[in-house]
Structure formats: structure tokens, C-alpha cells
Amino acid sequence: MLATFLRICLLRANPQDLPASNGLLALALLAHVAADVLSLRGMVDLRAALQAGVVDTVLLVALAHTALLLRNHPDRARQTLTALAGCGALLTLLSHAAVTLAQPIVAPPVTALPFIVWFVLVYGHILRHALSIGFGLAAGFGLAYLFVSVLVTSAFLPIPPPEPV
């Protein structure tokens, strides 16, 4: 199954290539939370990371499910959410590994930028198939989700004290 998620991340498979399985969906959602927690763990305590990870995953489910209902495709929810959560988890883990390895040499935002673009492209690819819309609009939805996710989850993260001047 990991190979299918990787192929979706490489835009060589589609969400409908995943089985419509409640078990796989649950596993993908758990992986999404775990990847978020791992990526935040170096910056915040476990409780804050877990809260942010759960909120981000609930937000992903709510927004994707709402979009599918509005487009009259509720039957695609399991495979779409499985693809979004599984690929999101995979890309988060890859990004976290790259940022961690490159941190002594390259600033984290610079290392993360290609992964953010990749994330938007993958989510656009998944949403294009799930919502039966053009890729540009679907990638715009992926970018909008990323923006909303950062805004909402940041409310659950402690604000670091300002650095002395």
C-alpha cells in the first residue's frame, strides 16, 4: 500500500487506485496525526504537538468531506481522505527528514519550500480526481487548505517569546 501512496505523490496513481477501506482510512488518518506530531515535536511539547496534529487532521477531513458533498461526490470520501491523509503524512515525514538533515547548512524554510510546492501539487492531483475539476483550481484548493491549516493549528501552538535585540 505504501507504494500506491508513493505513486500518488509522484502523480503516477490516483486516489481511486486505493481501496475504499475503513481500516486503511483509519490507518492513514493516524499516520497523518503522527507525522504532524513528529514534525512539531522539536518545537513544542508533546501535548501541543498532539493537539495541533489532531486539529489539522480533523480540519483535513472536514474540508475535504464538505467539498465532496458540495460537488455531489460523497461516495468518493473514503478513497479521497485516505489519499490526502496518507500522502500528507508521507510528505510531512519526508519534509521533516530533509529539514532536520539540512538544518546545520540550510535554513528550515528554504529546505521546506520545495516540499510545500510538492504538497500543493499532490493535493491538487488528488482533489482534481476526487472533485472532477481542473488541476489549477484543485491545486488552489490544496494551497487554501495549507493556508487554513497553518492559521488554525498555530492557535494551538505556544507563541515563542521575542528574541532580545
Rank of each mutant, 00 (worst) to 15 (best):
A34K: 09
A34G: 13
D36S: 15
V37I: 04
S39V: 00
L40R: 07
R41A: 11
R41C: 01
M43V: 01
V44E: 00
D45N: 12
D45T: 00
R47M: 13
A48S: 11
A49V: 01
Q51M: 15
A52Y: 03
V54Y: 06
V55M: 13
D56Q: 14
D56H: 14
T57F: 11
T57G: 11
V58N: 11
L59A: 02
L59M: 08
L60V: 08
A62C: 05
A62S: 10
A62K: 02
L63M: 14
A64T: 14
H65L: 15
H65W: 13
H65I: 05
H65N: 11
L68S: 07
L69K: 15
L70F: 12
H73Y: 08
P74M: 06
R76Q: 15
R76G: 12
A77V: 12
A77E: 05
R78E: 13
Q79M: 14
T80K: 07
T82N: 12
A83L: 11
A83T: 12
L84V: 12
G86N: 14
C87D: 03
G88V: 08
A89K: 07
L90K: 03
L93K: 10
L93H: 10
L93E: 12
L93G: 12
L93A: 14
H96W: 07
A97H: 11
A98C: 14
A98E: 07
V99G: 07
V99P: 00
V99M: 07
T100L: 03
T100D: 07
Q103R: 14
Q103T: 06
P104S: 03
P104M: 09
I105M: 12
I105T: 11
V106P: 02
A107I: 00
P108Q: 04
T111V: 01
T111C: 02
T111A: 09
A112Y: 06
P114V: 01
F115E: 07
F115M: 04
V117P: 03
W118E: 05
F119A: 04
F119N: 14
F119T: 05
F119L: 09
V120W: 05
V120N: 03
V120F: 02
V120E: 02
L121S: 03
L121P: 00
V122M: 02
Y123V: 06
G124A: 05
G124Q: 05
H125A: 04
I126F: 10
H129W: 14
A130D: 08
A130W: 08
A130M: 08
